[in-house]
């Protein structure tokens, strides 16, 4: 019953992220900005949220990373991922965070300053007309807790353009 309720969106999935190697390419990595500009992007997306350079094709299954380094002290690391949330645009189009073995959200095992997610689009939605031309801008929000004493919590959002490539 629980997996069905998670799939239906009745409740949010809860799992623990693993430490691992970040394999997202540079173009699939976005870095937090310390002074986020007050620039409107779209409804429901925080102003000035950075955008991943590489758009996402709905048929892809590739990792995207968020780098919190500019917000953290030199010896500080991400201790845990408290939450990952997708926006309502993503929900409308069947976009989800993959939590299968080997694809679950990851904290960078080397520097401890990046987190990585694998996104996927439900097969019936991959050919949706909304992904044509300019596609759709969707927001991914990460909330992480660091190992600072006392621990810090950062919540930042990034924008991903999803369109046919």
């Amino acid at each position: 019953m629980l997996p069905l309720m998670i799939a239906a969106g009745v409740i949010a999935a809860q799992a623990e992220p693993a430490a691992g190697e970040i394999v997202a390419s540079a173009d699939c990595t976005v870095t937090a900005v310390t002074r986020q500009a007050e620039v409107a992007i779209a409804a429901g997306i925080p102003q000035g949220a950075p955008t991943w350079p590489q758009p996402y094709d709905p048929g892809d299954h590739v990792p995207y990373a968020f780098d919190f380094a500019p917000l953290m002290a030199e010896d500080e690391r991400i201790a845990s991922i408290a939450a990952i949330r997708l926006g309502s645009q993503a929900a409308a189009l069947g976009i989800a965070v993959d939590q299968a073995a080997g694809y679950a959200p990851t904290i960078d095992v080397d520097g401890g300053r990046k987190v990585q997610v694998w996104l996927l689009v439900s097969a019936p939605y991959q050919g949706d007309g909304q992904f044509d031309a300019g596609g759709v801008r969707m927001v991914v929000t990460f909330q992480v807790v660091t190992d600072a004493l006392p621990p810090k919590r950062f919540e930042r959002s990034a924008v991903l353009v999803v369109r046919q490539l």
Binding site: G9, A82, A83, R85, L86, S88, Q89, A91, A92
Partner: peptide, 29 residues
């Protein structure tokens, strides 16, 4: 860790929309 990908719910707006909408974090698209 909470992973919240939102949900898809029925939405009806007179003269505007009737169908399945995306819902997440207090917003609907």
């Amino acid at each position: 860790m909470i992973v919240d990908c939102g949900s898809r719910l029925r939405l009806d707006i007179d003269g505007v929309f009737s169908g399945t909408a995306g819902v997440a974090d207090g917003r609907v698209s």
